[in-house]
Amino acid sequence: MENHSEHGRHGSPEGYGPGGHATLGGLSVDANGLRFVPAETRFTPSDSLDWSFQIVSQNGDVVTDFEEAHGQRGHLIVVRRDLTRFQHLHPTLGNDGTWRVEALTLPDPGVYRAFIDIVVDGHPMTLGVDLFASGEMAVAPRPNTARHATAAGYDIELQTGGILAGEASELVFEIRDDGEPVSRLDPYLGALGHLVALREGDLAYLHVHPEETSPDSGQVEFGARFPTAGRYRLFLQSKPDGTLITTQHDIRVEQ
């Protein structure tokens, strides 16, 4: 699939709202009659593990049929609960319904949340499960708002103003190189950018996707609706000049 708009603002499948998922997800291992069943939840920090999991129905059957969304049948997001150590992975699906991730690594001690983003029978959903890396966790400080970030020599700025809970919002990111908007943004997962928003406190998951923008504009725009007030961390992935970068931005959504 080459066009994210199939699951974006235009022609959204059931369960999607403007710009992505209509509701926050990932708060439960069990939703919509399906359960996220990992083979292992305990890790040794920095050690890689060939990890697997299944999605199981209420009657105990392993689900084997998943639809593609954004070029993949499953998107696995792993984030430590202090909203750091972000990973976006694409596990492989076996014929028996077992998903596999080669050499999954939790780099530091702490509790991580693993989100699996899937579409089953036309219904998009996100399930979540906690993973544990043993040892003393050093909690990272988090700013109240941080709209500017740098990565691989690029400057990325979230230019959107105030954001209100329940209101449709446009999130505009500008990517600059030496002070000028980049001349080319290459597709990533069939679009010019990919954005995950996590709510501080419970890590409720909001997966949004970009509006149609020109690849030579230096900008990526997203439509989103944040259902509650609070602080959110946004993880942006984009490919200026063919270089995949990941940046994090912090916002406060007002009531």
Rank of each mutant, 00 (worst) to 15 (best):
I163T: 10
V119T: 14
M1Y: 10
G161D: 14
R184K: 11
T23H: 15
R176N: 07
L203K: 02
L206K: 09
G26W: 11
S169P: 12
D178G: 08
H148S: 15
P215M: 11
L24N: 08
V129C: 07
V119H: 15
A146D: 01
I245R: 00
G201D: 06
G162R: 14
P227C: 13
A197H: 03
G19K: 11
G122M: 02
E68H: 08
G162D: 08
D178T: 13
T246C: 09
A103L: 06
T150Q: 07
V56T: 12
G218S: 00
D82T: 13
R81E: 09
T64H: 09
T98L: 03
T150G: 03
T64E: 14
V139Y: 02
H21P: 01
G71Y: 13
T160G: 00
V253P: 07
A138P: 11
L89Q: 02
D47E: 15
L198S: 01
P187N: 13
G15P: 03
H7M: 06
A138L: 13
S217W: 10
Q72T: 15
L185V: 01
D50F: 00
M1E: 08
S217F: 12
D61H: 14
T41W: 01
E254W: 09
Y154I: 02
V101N: 06
V139T: 15
V120G: 00
S57E: 14
V37I: 11
V37T: 06
E174T: 15
G8N: 05
E170S: 02
G26M: 11
H70N: 13
L76E: 01
